[in-house]
Amino acid sequence: MILASWLDTVFDSFWGPTVFRSIGGLAAVLLPAGAIVYLYLFKMMSFMQSRLGPTEAGPYGSLQLVAEVGKWLQKEDIFPRKADRIVFAAAPFVVLMSSFLLVLVVPFGPDAWFVNLDTGIYFALAVSSVSVIGILMAGWASASKYSMLGGLRAAAQLIAYELPLVLAVIGVVIQAGTLNMQDIVLAQAEGEIFGWGGIGNPFILTQLLGFFIFMVAMQAELTQPPFDMPVAESEIVTGYMTEYSGIRFLLFFIGEFATAGIFAMIASVLFLGGWWVPGLDPDSNWFNVLGPLVMFAKVIVVTFLIFWFRITYPRFREDQLQKLAWKILIPLSLANIVATGILKVAF
């Protein structure tokens, strides 16, 4: 009773919800990122490459990431002599900021959300491009040719792949009839596949092509191999990150994997039913607890695909990547929109 009334007072004040949401936001960004790095980058990649990965730090090397973070924090934060110091220092924060902005609109349960925007998916796709600014800042301010090539490559690539990403989402939006991410989840929970509503309508079933295009474009947005030209280590060292060390490199590193996790969340909201699982009532209050866990499980599945591709494929060349975007993915996604529209009107 005392606890409940105390909670009421805390949540009625300004600081209560703010602190709660900040912790939730940090958890939503950092937990999947850490899990992805350990599970996939450290362990799965090692097993697929016939090695063991970290084994010493903690059980099965699970604390390796903590050790790595500690190492990076201790390292000297080096500025190149000719670097534009302010821009150079700010760039990693801009990149990381885009991940935090992205997670705002992701719903984790019927009432577990940060912001319930009516134009949620529109907002998400818009702020995902903020990281381009950060990368360009890093590339330009480093005063290094490798960095600049990497930054320019990243900008060209991210802008080229925004388009198929957006167009792939439009199919989902047509089917759901809304831009609100919460309503997209509910539309999948309550939807029907050509009149059969046994498992609702996870859009991966009816938007398979859209899901495929979204995954490819997402891989490119995340600059994961085979689309990792901006950081291509055998060509331009590590692209825009070449001159970074210590904590600023760590921020880029977290940003990369946090964004991977959040894009996986968006993919699971759009195509896999988000926090909802078939057979359960989406209005149940239990989903406020269960939802984040369901979401996490789906994120792990989607990121598995991302990292599977990453480990398997060689890297495209810059012009081949653009060809893939403009000559294959965009026409395909336009066809997908037309087909979805016709079917939507017909049924």
Binding site: M45, Q49, S50, P225, S234, Y313, P314, R315
Partner: peptide, 16 residues
């Protein structure tokens, strides 16, 4: 050559 074109896995198989 795998590493040069951006595939990390072949080099480990080769070394193994």
């Amino acid at each position: 050559m795998g590493v040069q074109v951006g595939a990390t896995t072949p080099v480990f198989y080769a070394f193994r």
